Amino acid sequence: MFLGLRNVQGVEKGTKFYVPGPMCAAFYSTSEENRELIGNVYVKKPVVVIEEKGNMYRIVVDGWVKKNTLNIEKDDHLGVEYAKTKKEIELLEEPILLIGMGSLLGSKYANVNGNSKVTILEKKVDWVKIRTYGWVDKGILSNEIPDLQVNKKQPREIEMIKWDWTDLEGSILINGVVRNNSNKTFNYLKLKFEAKNEDGTSLGTGDTYINRTEFNPGEQSSFRVDIDGAIPKTNTIKISYELDDKFRE
């Protein structure tokens, strides 16, 4: 039990609560004492309550997992796809192909035990968005938004805020957008990139100038860079980047 947390009685369906820490919120198959652990929602993540019974809330848990971690089945009568987890898996808020390298740790939302039944919501390449439900003790949830600034990493002075890539069969083309979080103006800013396979093996490097000659504080700019000779093993890659040497302090 966490001291100082306020429980809200008679909550409306769809009310959002938060996991304030210092522990994860375990969720179970039923609200009864004889119940099985399904998984955990991580610290400071929001959950949506859909039912209340005694000292328990029933919550919705959504997240993205790799397709190969599931045994997928289709219910033709209902037109819905279900799956069972092959092993314990971690759910991400976004699939890796939509987030930059270095954002992965911050995107972890929950974990679900093996052999758990889940519903398929959406598919993107080799990633699947799943949904499961569970019961959680009211005492470990709070209706107050946690202070997400605690221990939060400071953004990079040049931050990549979105990117995607195209396989050109012998090279890859990366398009993206960066933002200047610093208080400095950069002229003819050049970035160096490395692309990697999902298993961490390098696909190659490349460099490019952003599409703004003068890059002022708070501004955003697009870029594109070719990684010649890159032949990805799968439909998922990771990229990292850094400022060209002459822009480093």
Rank of each mutant, 00 (worst) to 15 (best):
W127Y: 15
T132G: 12
T205H: 00
I38L: 15
D147L: 10
E12T: 09
G218H: 06
A25H: 08
D164R: 13
V178H: 06
M23K: 14
D244L: 00
W64D: 04
S182Y: 05
L78K: 08
D207M: 05
D76C: 02
I172L: 11
P155V: 07
E242V: 01
R35M: 05
T69C: 03
V43K: 12
I38N: 08
P155M: 07
R6P: 01
F27M: 04
V118P: 03
E169N: 14
K196D: 03
F186R: 07
T69I: 00
L98A: 06
K233N: 09
R248C: 07
K238Q: 10
Y42W: 07
A83W: 01
W64K: 02
L189F: 12
G63V: 05
N115G: 02
E249L: 13
E52P: 14
G4E: 10
R131E: 15
Y109T: 11
M101Q: 11
K74F: 13
A110P: 04
D137V: 12
M23L: 15
Q154W: 07
Y18I: 02
D137H: 13
R131M: 04
I130S: 03
E242N: 09
K162L: 04
V11Q: 05
Y18E: 00
I140W: 09
I237R: 10
L191W: 06
S240Q: 04
G106M: 11
T236Y: 01
I231Q: 11
R35V: 11
R156F: 15
V49M: 08
R131F: 00
G206M: 11
L148P: 01
G114L: 11
Y188C: 03
A26Y: 11
K45A: 01
H77A: 15
